[in-house]
Design a protein around this nucleic acid. Structure first.
Lengths: 101, 101
DNA sequence: GCATAATATGAATTATAATTCATATTATGC
DNA sequence: GCATAATATGAATTATAATTCATATTATGC
């Protein structure tokens, strides 16, 4: 028996179940960002964002393109867009009580 | 600022990112189960399963029907089925390296 | 209404993940 | 090749969630 890494479902959901990572994904829905700008924009520490970006890459949610000593991160929209749609639909339909906003 | 409960997305993904809950959901994909049978089938403690079932209900993934002093749990398939499909697709497409099985 | 089976609950403990911190790496312009 | 800016990394700490345990609740048959 191995750890969670060979349980991709767990990894998938755990990754998105974290607020900071969720924030990053949402930011990237708008446009590409440099690592530093993500941190500044969201008010998170540089190294924290770096850790999270790594994980998001591992899961195939986010990709990176090196530009000199900068790294520009962007979303793999293919999954995220339909996923968000599905989740929003579910929440609206079945989790009204939980929602505040 | 409140806690995670008013952040339904977080709740949604966190809930599915747990292995025991994931197992329960998968078991319920097959058929309805009594709480006790879920525990026995999966080898989890009764109270643990009970805690998890509660959470799964909160998220609208699972529903319950009382039958005497038993409670029969069943899946809200409306979200789970398409969600699983989407996730499997993503994993196959973008997370090959992670998978072991 | 008492004994039993099924399930739920809350607090305490334990396990796990997130965050920070200090530092390493990498690419650039000069 | 040195100084700088951007980013990554790993270990230590801290925060959070999972699990267990003891017990409460609930419905049933008698």
């Amino acid at each position: 028996m191995q750890k969670s890494l060979n349980k991709p479902h767990k990894l998938f959901f755990e990754t998105l179940g974290n607020e900071a990572r969720w924030d990053i994904v949402h930011l990237l829905l708008r446009k590409h960002y440099r690592a530093t700008d993500i941190a500044r924009e969201l008010g998170y520490e540089q190294s924290l964002v770096s850790h999270h970006l790594k994980r998001l890459q591992t899961c195939g949610f986010v990709r990176v393109e090196a530009q000199g000593n900068e790294r520009v991160y962007y979303l793999n929209e293919k999954t995220i867009r339909p996923l968000l749609k599905l989740v929003d639909k579910h929440i609206n339909e079945f989790c009204k009580k939980i929602c505040t906003t």
